[in-house]
Amino acid sequence: MPIYPPPSPFLRRAAAIGAVITGLSLLAGCASAPPRQAMRPAPVYPQPPVVPAVQAHPLLMPQMQEQRLPNASQNQPAPYDNGGIETPNTPTMQAMPTASAPAVIALVTRAEAQTAAGDLGGAEATLERAVQIQPNNPRLWLDFAQLRLAQNQPAQAEQFALRAVQYAVGNNGLRAAWLMVAKTRDAQGNAIGASDARRKAGVMPTSPTQTQG
């Protein structure tokens, strides 16, 4: 089934735009991320003592710096209600804070070049290599979503965007991921779902509970 037809000019353009977004944002992603939260203790039974018997190691990235992701709405032709939260500040994304960042940067750069050259199949293969290395990197799932949009598979794109939501870190990361969900729902003609996603992108509060424990 999935034999590649040559991408139409429109798709090429869409893909190119996608490449630019992903390119810039990835550079941000791989270079920056706050240290992960300490791992949660594993279940202990019976009850006390309090000290957990098992603790997994957090994967720490030594020095993080943030970079900006271009505002996703720049590529969003349809205006939408952002609940007044949208600011000139652009959402940022973080990558998995691991030592494998250079590898992922190299792969995403390659995927961008392939996308720009219209080789969506090649880009897909390259992104899969990256996902094998960092399966929890929200940036990669966002790139995948963008790619599926370029391949005219908005329903799959939505699933990939939801996976980005799952791993997104911080408000800006979450916002970018939900905006992508909105975009993929728009592409499917699901206006209600899209505005729901935008609401989540706009009003997602900081969860104070994140730092507990």
């Binding site: 939260q37 949660r40 309090v50 929890n136 969860s207 507990q212």
Partner: peptide, 19 residues
């Protein structure tokens, strides 16, 4: 690779007395 046990956004760890 150690499992990444970072909780998703909707999870809250609480100190409880199970009984």
């Amino acid at each position: 690779k150690p499992r990444d046990m970072t909780p998703p956004k909707g999870i809250n760890f609480v100190h409880v007395d199970v009984a």
